[in-house]
């Protein structure tokens, strides 16, 4: 292999690696939990409005009251959120926020955004309570093993 083609190939490989990283970065899915529960940050309490509509990345707006949580699936880091306060003095807030790439589920606090808290409080990592083993799979698996097999079932040629 000549040195020129070696360089070409390395460049191609490198480009592919960079492309992969970029694709991962923009394609990584996040579950956003849009949350209107009141939060206390640095001793100050933030409350959401009575009735709002929330839309992330231009999706259909959803109505939310106080102390609610909705699930939104998005991909990539940068997101745009549009909050329209319906109750009281109607106003529209449009903000951008970022979700770290390796944060699978993020809690997005509406009161923090509405109350103009520091941006680092807008998005926090969400850790779900330990999920139990899904029983369906468990049962299916045990069921497989418990199937009455003829003594020589293994000698049956199934797939080659």
């Amino acid at each position: 292999m000549s040195s020129r083609s070696l360089i070409q190939r390395s460049a191609l490989l490198f480009a592919l690696l960079v492309l992969s990283a970029w694709l991962f970065y923009i394609g990584k899915a996040h579950t956003l939990l849009i949350d209107t529960n009141a939060v206390t940050l640095d001793g100050r309490e933030f409350k959401s409005a009575e009735a709002i509509t929330v839309s992330v990345d231009g999706k259909t707006p959803e109505d939310m009251g106080r102390a609610e949580r909705i699930l939104v699936s998005v991909s990539g880091q940068q997101h745009r959120i549009v909050i329209e306060v319906v109750s009281g003095g109607a106003r529209k807030v449009e903000k951008r926020f970022a979700v770290p790439t390796f944060m699978d589920s993020a809690l997005v606090s509406i009161p923090a955004i509405l109350g103009d808290a520091a941006p680092e409080h807008w998005v926090t990592k969400f850790t779900a309570a330990d999920r139990e083993d899904t029983p369906a799979e468990q049962m299916q698996h045990e069921g497989d093993a418990a199937l009455p097999t003829p003594p020589d079932a293994k000698s049956l040629p199934s797939k080659p």
Partner: peptide, 14 residues
């Protein structure tokens, strides 16, 4: 010996 006759797709990979 096996005790069963297998029809249909049974012989496919015999």
């Amino acid at each position: 010996s096996f005790g069963f006759i297998q029809l249909y797709e049974g012989p496919l990979y015999m």
